[in-house]
Design a protein around this nucleic acid. Structure first.
Lengths: 181, 181
DNA sequence: AAAATATGTCAGTATTGTTGACGTATTTTT
DNA sequence: AAAAATACGTCAACAATACTGACATATTTT
């Protein structure tokens, strides 16, 4: 048998691009942007021996204090076991506490402690700074457009998860004086 | 000694929010958007027994045909071993071929085959569609703003990796041509 | 000839995810 | 009250993707 068991295809030397009818520039930008966006908290987490999974749990418990394990699983779209490990660590290190559900005592409502709140804020701070800078660079009037765009990128049936969160109630903030420019 | 081997902190019941000076809404939207953005190709990849790592390699080899292993490692920011596995699979399945570098024969230039090009396009198609829809939903005039924003989210020192790509007409590969003789 | 470089590979490990099964406490249904 | 369903925790086994460190080979540079 000659070395023909795999008939190698011919190398293509022209780059793919927009002419193929596909929005490669934004696809790629999204990849790079998210990579760097997550790199900021990753460095902090490393000091705690935590990973990105811990960050996500911490984030949502801080955003929706009192949410149950089942709700958290639904938001994160992971399995019980994946959550169990990181949640246990966060509870053991006193970043999160569990309280029995008031109506249904089988449920465990998850709350951040002072320590957990502080860590969540510390993790979010560099991300928020990056976003703020990026908004400045791209024109400060774009905030609404960016929000709309990102929200439209989410699967429609899952947008409910976002709307529940206390993101929009007092979005006014007009004339807010955090102007770096 | 009551159960105080760990003195648990008090549960905090108020959600974090923008009043903490942090842009939680966009942080969260970015998370959800990227999660769903990557879920489209993930489903296709599963049919091939491939994962997200294969997708990234395939993407950049198609975007920059002829890039070397070292360049690919630099773009992906992973180690040689992490790349080795997925690259080997992609070569064995004839999605990518290697050619010795013309100037330096130690290098392996990576090129997509017809098959690899087709898969890259198939993976990018639903992502592009999602982007297009989202741009439509958020106002069609926002494309430039979105691009600027995403680019500004990338670490400045790494933006060069993006500029090299054939997204913009200023694609000038420096150095002596690698001409096909 | 020696050193440096580009790549490939091996061995071992960590993190984060998966599926499936089972136990316990609690609530709901019968 | 007994049975079934539910919420959660946990165990065992496994898979994908990353990591570090070491070493081999071919090739280029010094």
């Amino acid at each position: 048998m000659a070395d023909r068991k795999t008939v190698r295809g011919t190398p293509i030397k022209t780059p793919v691009g927009e002419q193929d009818g596909i929005d490669f520039s934004i696809i790629e930008l999204f990849f790079f942007a998210y990579r760097d966006f997550t790199s900021d908290p990753d460095e902090i987490l490393a000091d705690y021996g935590f990973g990105r999974a811990h960050h996500r749990v911490l984030h949502f418990v801080n955003r929706r204090p009192g949410l149950t394990v089942a709700e958290l699983l639904d938001v994160l779209k992971i399995t019980k076991q994946s959550l169990a490990r990181v949640l246990k660590q966060l509870i053991d290190t006193d970043h999160i506490v569990q309280l029995p559900g008031p109506r249904d005592r089988r449920q465990r409502e998850l709350y951040p402690t002072e320590k957990g709140r502080a860590l969540a804020l510390a993790l979010a701070r560099p991300q928020s700074r990056r976003i703020h800078t990026a908004l400045g660079d791209s024109g400060l009037g774009n905030r609404a457009s960016i929000e709309l765009f990102l929200k439209a990128m989410v699967n429609p049936e899952l947008r409910a998860q976002i709307d529940i969160l206390p993101a929009n109630p007092t979005q006014k903030r007009s004339g807010d004086d955090d102007g770096e420019h």
